[in-house]
Structure formats: C-alpha cells, structure tokens
C-alpha cells in the first residue's frame, strides 16, 4: 500500500468492496492525493450515497456519513449549514445523484451551496447488479433493458450547469492527474462544484453494456470516447461526432448559500 493510502485510509474498514478493476478505487486515490496536497484533512466532512460509489468515503479516515440512496446531498447541506468552514464532499453514483436524488441535486446547484459533488458515472446501477441508470446510453442492453434501452440518457454536466452549479468538470478514471487538480479546484471553489467521473465498471457495465470488456479494455474504450477542448479544436467533425467532452466545462461566480445565511445571522437584510 502506498504512503497516501496508509495515511488517509480507515484501515479497519478495509478491504474496499469494489470489484477488481473498478474505477472507483482509482478516483478515491486521486481524491486522497488532492486532500493531501491541500492539507485539509481536519476540515473534511465526507458524505456517501448508496451504490458502489457511495462506499468510497467510508474508507477515508475522517468524519464520514454513509447516508440513504439519493439523500447524500441534503445531508451534506445540513452539515455545511451548521458549520460553513467545513469542506463537505459528496460521493455519489449516477443513479444516486440524478436518478433517485435528482431533485436534491438540481436544488443544491440552484442554491449554489458550497459542496463538492463527485459523481461516478458508470452508466449503470452497479451495486444492484446491472440495471439501467439515467445515464445508460440509448439502445444499451442491461438487466432491465433486455431489448435495448428505449430511453435517452442525461448529460449530468449540462444538467448541473443549467441548474446553477458554478464549477462543472468531467474527467474519466483514466485521468488521475487531471482528477487531482480538478478535486483541488472544486474543493477550493466557493460554491456548488460538480465533477462527473466516467468510470469503468468491468463487472456490471462491462458485462452487460460492453459485451465482456475487462478493466484495461474498458478504460481504453472510455478514453477513446472522450475529447478535451484542445483535442476537439483540431479534430475533423466526423471524428468528433459522438465523443463526450471532458475537462473544465463551466466556471462562474454567484453568491453562495451559507454565506447568505450567515448574513441573515448577522442581521443584514433583516
């Protein structure tokens, strides 16, 4: 085990539940490195939803709450409102964040409450065994779309931006260095920061959507499907078609909720 993991993981909670080759562990590793570089361990309050991804913060040896399916964000709002100086980070899945928890997600973005929300997009419900998620591509077969998914997926980043998020980025589990930087930016960003991480789920999505790709093949496949702004600028349109944009997608400034609440406490505007 490497030094960062030794320093930050809750050893008595190991091993992590993730399947071999699951991207969740890589993303968690990037998060630990971001925390280490920021030196903010004591200020952290971590919140997990339910799903494979919801387990990520449970392994970090700081104050952590593992909540109900879809409800990580409102719990995080309660934590943040009671002590705005804490750095609250939510780990959530695509189903957790924009399926069952979609209403909380858009409203937290609208409020611009200072949270960092890390959403693992594996395009599937991993924990429950490979059913369709609101991110599952159209036509994909899963345990609940045996004839191909008759629905279209959400673009979570567009949803976040439209709802009012003030930091929006998308990376993949194959971009750990970029993730470390993005996590640092998001944690320091004074507002609702959203990071979607496209992640290989070799066991469920790999089997049902990708027809049996193993972890390295699956990650290579994800990398092939994405494009940065710089790459897009030089790419012919036919090559660009169907690729997902990654990188920092949106950044803006707007008054943050708990700062506004603190102004009420001080008697301003009352």
């Amino acid at each position: 085990m490497n030094e960062i993991a030794e320093k930050y993981l809750r050893q008595e909670a190991l091993p992590m539940i993730f399947c071999p080759g699951c991207g969740d562990g890589t993303v968690l590793g990037a998060f630990l490195r971001a925390v280490d570089e920021l030196k903010i361990g004591d200020q952290l309050a971590l919140v997990g939803g339910i799903g494979c991804s919801g387990w990520m913060p449970v392994y970090v040896n700081v104050d952590t709450i593992h909540t109900l399916h879809g409800r990580a964000i409102p719990v995080a709002v309660g934590l943040k409102a009671t002590r705005p100086d804490r750095k609250v980070v939510v780990f959530t899945g695509d189903g957790d964040a924009i399926g069952i928890g979609g209403n909380h997600f858009i409203h937290a973005a609208r409020r611009n409450v200072d949270l960092t929300v890390i959403m693992i997009n594996n395009a599937i419900y991993g924990m429950t065994g490979g059913q369709a998620a609101p991110t599952t591509p159209s036509g994909a077969t899963t345990q609940t779309t045996p004839y191909g998914n008759p629905e279209d997926p959400f673009d979570a980043c567009k949803l976040a931006e439209a709802a009012g998020a003030t930091y929006v980025a998308r990376w993949t589990a194959g971009h750990p260095r970029q993730l470390i930087k993005a996590f640092k930016e998001a944690i320091q960003h004074p507002g609702f920061a959203f990071i979607e991480v496209m992640t290989q789920c070799p066991v469920q999505a790999g089997r049902y959507i990708k027809g049996g790709l193993d972890a390295p093949e699956f990650l290579a496949d994800i990398r092939k499907s994405v494009v940065t702004e710089a790459q897009a600028a030089t790419m012919p349109p036919e090559e660009l078609a169907g690729r997902t944009r990654i990188g920092l997608l949106h950044r803006s400034e707007r008054p943050e909720l708990t700062q506004r609440l603190a102004a009420l406490n001080r008697g301003e505007k009352r």
């Binding site: 409102p74 719990v75 409102a81 209403n103 409203h107």
Partner: peptide
C-alpha cells in the same frame, strides 16, 4: 432552510444534527 421536499428536510436535519 425551506427544502425541495420533506425527504430533503429530514435528511438535512440528520446532517445538521451530526453537524452539531
């Protein structure tokens, strides 16, 4: 906080209680 629904309300209360 006026939340988006009652599910959010009870969960925010839980977060606030652990928040102190």
């Amino acid at each position: 906080l006026q939340m988006e629904d009652e599910i959010a309300s009870i969960n925010a209360v839980i977060g606030a209680s652990w928040g102190g």
